Every structure is written in C-alpha cells, then in structure tokens.
Computed example of a mutant assay.
Amino acid sequence: MKIDSLDLGERPVILAPMEDVTDPSFRYMCKRFGADMMFTEFISSDGLIRDAKKSLDKLNISDAERPIGIQIYGHLIDAMVEAARMAEEANPNVIDINFGCPVRKVAARGAGSGMMREPDKLVEMTRQIVNAVKLPVTVKTRLGYDDESRIIVELAERLQDVGVKALTIHGRTRAQMYKGEADWSLIGQVKNNQRMHIPIIGNGDIDGPVKAKEMFDRYGVDGIMIGRATYGRPWIFKEVKHYLASGEVLEQPSVIERVDIAKEHFRKSIEIKGDRVGVFEIRRHFSSYFKGLPDFKETRFKLVTANDPIEIFQLLDFVAERWGNFEEIKSMIYRSPLSGKE
C-alpha cells in the first residue's frame, strides 16, 4: 500500500489517532510492537493558530516514530489551511484531516464528523488544504452524519478528485458514536468502486488478529486502522502481523510480561514529559494493562493516584508478585475495553 510515494508494504496495520491516548510514549510502545504507521492525537486548528501550548506540543514527533501523520481538525477553512501549513513545518510524512470525531463538543461546532452535515464545505476545505501544502493529505471520516445521510461512497470520490492520497473510513455514522457494530459493507463499496484508486483503510471494531484478517479478506481494504483495542494492548500490532503471516494466534502476555511492558511505557512517559506530567499521562493506561485481574480495585486506585515514580514502580512490582503466579490469569485471553475515542 502506498500513500503517494510512502510505501507501507502489504496489508499495513495502523494506529488510529486518539485524543489523550496516542501521546508520544504510547506511540513509542505501539511502534515497538510493529505498528506500520501512526498518527498524533488530533490537534485543534484554532489552538495551533492561537499558539496554544497544548496544541503546539502535539506537533512534537521524532524520526523513530516514522512513518507518522499529524492530524488536525476544525470548522473554519482559513484556520484549517493555516494549521495544515504549521503541521507541515513539523515535517510529518502526511497531513491528516479529521472528519470523523463524533464527540459532541467537536461535532456540535461543525468540526470532526460534524462536517459531514456540510459535504460541500468539507470537500472545499480539503481542496484548499491539499493546495496549500506539499505533503500528502489524507482524510479520516465516517459513513455519514446519520442513517439518513450515509454519503461515504459519493464523498470518497469527491475527496479523491480534490487530491486526497488515502482515505480512512470508520464504519459508523456520527449519530452512532461508538454504539452498535461497525458497518464495513459501505467501506467495501468504497474500496470496490472502480473509480477509486487511492488506498482505502478500514477502521472500526477490530479487536484482534482474526477480525483483522477477516476485514482484509472480506472487504479487500488496503490497510486497517486500530483504535480502542490498543488500550493496554500495544502488542496487538505484533499479534495481527504474526497472524496475517502465519495463521497462528499468539499467546497473550502473562501478568509479569504486562508489568514489564507497563514499566517500559512509564519510563518513556517520564523521559519525554518529566515526572509530573509523565505520571499524570500514564494513569489512563494502567487500568487497561491490568484489566480483568481479580481483587485489583485497591491496587488500581493506588496506581492511578500515586505521584511518586518510585512508588509507582514499587506498585508495579507488587502487581507482578501478587498476581504473576496465577497460571489461569497468565493464560486468559486479554480483551481491551471497547470504550473511549478513536
């Protein structure tokens, strides 16, 4: 699969952009386990042009993360064009436009998937961004705003016509949020439309290697993007790629192995962000790493409230000691939560 001249190989497995999740330390872990491409958290165009620190900080990427895309969102065309130029200065591999976020505070302003209520404006915004930057521009979107406006088949053609180099489609409408099952049939229609020649990346409800292969085989997509199933499970990229190559389902990491992974993630978090912010940003991941452990509530509370890195490492050692000897837990199938943003 190629995005313009960027070659991602056959059947790439891509990390979805997720607010408050795909920060640099989590991207580091996903890359270590084989993510073929990654995206930043989405970045507000308004925040960028106002020089808001939180938005500017999200532009920080490293060569070790490549290939990587910077994703922007907003509802004003001029602001989005300027934000795209600013994102290009950070030198990612692609600029990605978010037309998929269903969260009320984003969509209600006409940004994210709220833009799907105004497809003409959506296409014009995309056209102007494509013309304003030299990097490839990609788009992530949904099937439509609601069940009465599933416009993705026509919209995909229009986006291709204005110069988009790849399209990621989440198989739900904005109205669905994350409820119900993702409908991949329309993703398949886009992919199998003879007029389409850009890569089509499918997204939605991929929770493991078997589902990933099924989506490739059934709908013929060029790549898949995984979001919520990566929570506490960055090794899912290794699982999927191994299964695609061999047909073998890998055994899930033991509790002790998960502790080692969580420690590595935590070290990277404080290395990049410092002790205070690094501690704060790792908390959202700890619950997911150890989801399903019995009688874990008290230890979980300590993990997500402790402020001293030394204390946190000691708590992780306690997790390994307390739960690491349970063979039935070591062999259980670990399931990531299907909640959150993607």
Rank of each mutant, 00 (worst) to 15 (best):
A262P: 03
I169W: 09
L250I: 11
I198H: 03
Y231L: 15
A87C: 06
A245I: 05
Y289G: 07
T138G: 03
N60T: 08
P234Q: 11
V164K: 12
E281W: 11
F99A: 15
H285L: 00
A108E: 11
L59T: 08
G114T: 10
P199N: 05
Q252K: 14
D317R: 04
F99S: 13
I270V: 14
A212Y: 08
G114F: 05
Q160C: 10
I97L: 15
E328C: 03
N193C: 03
N98Y: 05
A262C: 00
A83Q: 02
E281G: 06
L15G: 05
N193H: 04
G171T: 00
P119R: 10
N91L: 07
K53W: 02
G34D: 11
I152A: 06
V190I: 02
A64K: 15
I14N: 00
I236R: 06
K58A: 09
D63G: 00
R127S: 15
G223E: 02
V304C: 06
P12V: 11
N60I: 12
A35T: 09
L293R: 07
I169K: 11
L338M: 14
A111F: 10
T126M: 15
A132V: 07
K105W: 14
P309K: 04
K238G: 00
I95V: 15
A262W: 00
G292T: 03
S336K: 08
G180V: 10
N193P: 01
A245N: 15
I206L: 03
R233H: 13
L167I: 12
L8C: 08
S44P: 13
E65K: 11
P209C: 12
T305P: 04
I43K: 09
L293E: 05
K341D: 15
P24E: 11
T141F: 09
Y73M: 03
F266I: 04
Q71L: 01
A83F: 05
V277G: 00
F99C: 14
V106M: 07
E19W: 10
I312M: 05
T22H: 12
R50S: 12
L159E: 02
H265V: 04
L48K: 07
S287C: 04
I200Y: 01
R276G: 00
E342W: 04
K31C: 03
I224G: 08
I256H: 11
S331W: 00
V130W: 07
C101Y: 08
M215T: 10
P199H: 12
G274W: 09
E148W: 12
D120H: 07
V94D: 01
L186F: 14
R228N: 06
R50G: 06
R228A: 02
N93I: 08
I206R: 05
R158L: 14
S113M: 07
G202Y: 01
L48H: 08
T141E: 00
R66V: 02
K165A: 12
L122T: 07
L250S: 09
Q71W: 03
